[in-house]
């Protein structure tokens, strides 16, 4: 279970570039729940993921993962608990190393890694079986450098590596956005399969309303550093893309409600 409590972060405070990226963000992800965060550019959705991953320290608030307060933990220490897949399929893997070597590295995440990276027979068989489950024909290319694979193949392997050790939470940061539509659909399908099979707690940032509607059990909508809508349960099951668009429009309209508009409206309500 992940508890994010009253999280706030202002970048470049007191300067002309001040950005109030998170303003009291508060939510709890149940154990084994798959949620998506959607929002406009600059809404703070990726900032939430980065805060959980420990990329920066929040100004206020706490992050509690399975009862452990990790708010002040450095990023590397959290890595043992958190699986992460980024938008760029070339991030998260070492291009020169083979598929098997990359996976062995992922298997040792959070543990001391010596030079003994040799892939023994049992490990190789396990890797082969799990790569075969991706149904991409990569099980016969375990010794090929990962840099020779397509973006979709690399992202599928990154997903496999990020979830190999069944992380306490899986963070997906627009992980299909840089892929072609066919590969994106394949990676999205694998994501849902792996999360359901391993009963992972997962948080996905996406720009795709189609993915938000189809994949997770919950949609958290952000705007200007705040949660403005939280679709879950029956409400989430009923929500469709036009509902999300309408909510976006409504939220955007609030920005147009300036002080001068308020003065004008005060005079026009009698």
């Amino acid at each position: 279970m992940l508890e994010v409590k009253n999280l706030s972060k202002t970048f470049s405070p007191g300067t002309v570039n001040e950005v109030r990226a998170l303003q009291g963000v508060d939510f709890t992800l149940a154990e084994g729940g798959f949620s998506a965060i959607i929002g406009t550019n600059g809404s703070g959705k990726s900032t939430v993921l980065n805060a959980i991953a420990g990329t920066f320290q929040p100004d206020e608030g706490r992050i509690i993962l399975d009862g452990i307060d990790i708010t002040r933990w450095p990023e590397f220490k959290r890595a043992a608990l958190i699986g992460r897949v980024f938008q760029n399929p070339f991030a998260g893997t070492a291009a020169e190393m083979s598929i098997a070597e990359n996976i062995v590295m992922a298997m040792k995440r959070g543990r001391r890694r010596g030079l003994g990276w040799a892939v023994d027979r049992n490990t190789r068989e396990e890797i082969g079986a799990r790569v075969r489950a991706l149904k991409m024909g990569l099980e016969d290319r375990l010794d090929n450098p990962i840099g020779t694979l397509s973006g979709g193949q690399r992202q599928a392997l990154t997903l496999l590596m990020a979830t190999w050790l069944r992380p306490r939470i899986l963070l997906l940061d627009e992980h299909t956005a840089a892929l072609d539509p066919k590969s994106a659909a394949k990676v999205a399908e694998l994501t849902s399969e792996i999360i359901a099979r391993d009963k992972l707690t997962a948080l996905m940032v996406t720009h795709s309303m189609q993915q938000a509607v189809a994949m997770p059990e919950r949609i958290i909508m952000m705007h200007r550093g705040k949660i403005v809508e939280d679709y879950h349960g029956e409400m989430k099951r009923r929500v469709r893309i036009p509902d999300l668009v309408e909510t976006f429009n409504r939220v955007t309209k609030r920005d147009l409600f300036s002080e001068s508009a308020a003065v004008m409206l005060m005079g026009q309500y009698r």
Binding site: T252, R254, L256, F257, E259, A261, A262, V263, L265, Y269
Partner: peptide, 13 residues
């Protein structure tokens, strides 16, 4: 202002 935003929604356009 800003309490009025809790009472009214303005078309804005």
């Amino acid at each position: 202002y800003p309490q009025i935003k809790e009472w009214l929604i303005f078309s804005g356009e």
